[in-house]
Design a protein around this nucleic acid. Structure first.
Lengths: 206, 206
DNA sequence: GTCTATACGTGGATAGAC
DNA sequence: GTCTATCCACGTATAGAC
């Protein structure tokens, strides 16, 4: 990705420096926010000079867009894999929940950034970022509706249940301190979220 | 509040202008974020000159702090009222949910601001703002534990249930577009949240 | 490929007239 | 009480040496 936009030819160097830039961005904007982060801050934290930065990022806004793009790319990959597996409704819903949490764990700063710094992105990107959430919810709703059709369970309010689950999952990257404070592991939380989903359903006997 | 900090003596004028300033702040920072809002933007939107602004706000950061302070003040008032009422556990939990949503509806931009622009505030204020959420959750947990003691219901995981409910409630100000899109009213949503809470409990027969 | 030096604009804040 | 004019610092971005 972004091979054309970046002025550095040797991909080894480029990837390494991009990583430095991204993680420095996450570190600083995690503390003071992306808007408040100056490129001088970024230069200092990443160890790359101001001039050097511009071989990689084009502009400050561009940097935010890149981050959003990378995250969306990853999510698309995983989503497509899940679709191809075509599991039974409940199994599929479970896989969505566990998969989403696993992604959030691995890409936690990316998610957090895209949630909190949405307004920093250009309008077009903002909408795409919201689309991520909407697509995810529709994915859940599909699973719920399919389950109802096959009569595995009943669900009165699939819209609200889906957004409840979405909100719960987002907590994992939005408020990691809560879970550290109470010593909740990823798996425990995934189980709990899946349980909440089941609690929102009328499971048919058996 | 803040009478001493503000240089304007006539309270009628002061209150009116403060309202202009606050709502202009919400409008602008709702679009581009607080950090990206310049005082020139604010001056234009509020109709008060740059110089004039400084009779009210002290500094840009001070403005953010004031907003956080006003919200916390309101929440404290309502919370104290609720405590004095000393209802039965389930009634109390229901009141907390409905009360919180009602507050969020009326003070929606204040909540949204304090959630999204936390990092704009000075550290001390940041912690106080997080404290709001923690106190709220502890309030829920208390209700849950009291219910267990009196054996009205069983609840295995009051911590996780409380933060689930908190997350659900926050959706109301964080993602109002979702609810408009699907035509969900405040009362419908309050009912749904209360229902989720019940779903998370083992209700004793009767 | 990476750095230093620099240009240029914008933003926060204040002084002082009205 | 409110405004205009102005100061100064900082932020983004670029040019050009190494």
């Amino acid at each position: 990705m972004y091979r054309e936009k970046i002025q550095i030819k040797k991909s080894e160097i480029a990837v390494g420096n991009l990583q430095k830039i991204f993680s420095a961005t996450f570190k600083i904007s995690g503390v003071k926010g992306f808007q408040a982060m100056s490129l001088r801050d970024l230069s200092y934290e990443s160890g790359i000079s101001m001039g050097g930065l511009y071989s990689y990022i084009g502009s400050k806004n561009d940097l935010a867009s890149m981050i959003e793009g990378v995250l969306r790319h990853h999510i698309d990959l995983v989503t497509n894999n899940l679709i191809e597996e075509s599991l039974a409704p409940l199994e599929s819903l479970k896989a969505i929940i566990f998969g989403a949490l696993y992604m959030m764990e691995r890409l936690s700063p990316w998610y957090y950034f895209c949630f909190m710094e949405l307004k920093g992105l250009p309008r077009e990107r903002q909408e795409k970022a919201l689309e991520i959430e909407l697509r995810f919810e529709r994915f859940l709703i599909d699973g719920l509706n399919r389950g109802e059709e096959i009569e595995v369970f009943k669900c009165e309010n699939s819209d609200l249940l889906a957004s409840q689950i979405t909100a719960q999952l987002q907590q994992w990257h939005l408020k990691p301190w809560k879970f550290k404070l109470k010593n909740i592991s990823l798996l425990q939380y995934a189980d709990y979220c899946y349980q909440s989903l089941l609690n929102g359903l009328d499971l048919s006997p058996g």
